[in-house]
Write a protein that binds this DNA or RNA. Sequence first.
DNA 1: CTTTGATTTGACCAACTGGTCAAACTCACG
DNA 2: CGTGAGTTTGACCAGTTGGTCAAATCAAAG
Lengths: 215, 215
Amino acid sequence: MPSKSQPAQTSARTKNRAPTRIQQKNRAAILGAALDVFSAQGFRGATIDQIATSAGLSKPNLLYYFPSKEAIHNTLLAGLLDTWLDPLRAMNPAGDPLQEILAYVHRKLQMSRDYPRESRLFANEIVQGAPRIHDALSTDLKELVDEKAALISSWIADGKLAPVHPYHLIFSIWSLTQHYADFDVQIRAVMNTQDPFDDAPEFIDTLYRRLLSPP
Amino acid sequence: MPSKSQPAQTSARTKNRAPTRIQQKNRAAILGAALDVFSAQGFRGATIDQIATSAGLSKPNLLYYFPSKEAIHNTLLAGLLDTWLDPLRAMNPAGDPLQEILAYVHRKLQMSRDYPRESRLFANEIVQGAPRIHDALSTDLKELVDEKAALISSWIADGKLAPVHPYHLIFSIWSLTQHYADFDVQIRAVMNTQDPFDDAPEFIDTLYRRLLSPP
DNA sequence: CTTTGATTTGACCAACTGGTCAAACTCACG
DNA sequence: CGTGAGTTTGACCAGTTGGTCAAATCAAAG
């Protein structure tokens, strides 16, 4: 006899079966908890036990849904980069240049406000040398930025925007918007009265209008 | 008999004696290695063994110079915040407003170029909630920023600068300059040909001139 | 109600990590 | 060259951590 029937499954996600209700619920709970923990402690600072407890599961039970700590982290990062680039992808070559860039800035700032944990997860990964997503950066990310930088350059050549270095313009947008999520603690320590996000959109809007308005 | 003579010393840095040549050399080597490791891995990601090996010492030998991993980290952070704020302290109320701010921006950018490890050490600490320096942020840092924000406000009131929110102006400077150190990997992944620092000063200079030049 | 696969868990393990300690070694100086 | 303070280390320890496993429990289709 060549083989016995299927050996007992030792993990979720069997071959091609649709995920059960329980699988969906638990995987979502794990990813949510993992986002909390990874974004606050970094990859090495996080422990499986923390994530499991925070998700309301035991450690072995968590490992029934994901094969390893790294697998959870990878799952989060994989979804993240794509989401993160959506605002830039949405920049429309047919729109009004200044308005397109301001709209991009607003979308990006809104993401920092709505998804600060994701922003910090990303920041942790990059600051520590992007060991797990370096490839995606130099392929997917670079490709998209090259494309949009070319678009900005053409807008400048047409006299629709004041001349600036297009790559550094994009970096500045990332930097300014993500700063409000990543360095939140620092900003709040300095501005301890009001929510920093209140005035940020107006400031950043002014900044890019003055920088980019054509002469 | 109340006490025997001095018990055998179990750590360096005896009472008030001046540090020996060996102590100076080894403490410096440890702090240098620790800066490498902490800035690249974060506090929890770093191990005493890594730091010791990188400093050319054995683990127990390292612990002869510093009582714990946390003590090394604290020593680094303590020196850091002060150095980090020097460029802002140097902003001169008697100088020309626009030039003073541009000079501040340049000093800050230069620090990111010269001390990227320090910048990343700081970024790691803040992104993860500043557990070890939160107090210093809401006292020393806040005090200095309040002072300089008031100065900027007065410059604006005098019509020497275009009106902007002074706190967000300062945040934007931190954000833009430190971004080049903290997100170095990402920037290099996108601009794989040239050194990102080459064009950054000119871009940032232009940005703040257009933002702040009085009408 | 039974069966079968999905889910959960307690017990366990090996590797790693921060830290200790007594003994050994080195060095400067009288 | 002897001596005591300063320096170094191998052996060790306890707590943590990522991950395994067999057995127990649960859910739902028949």
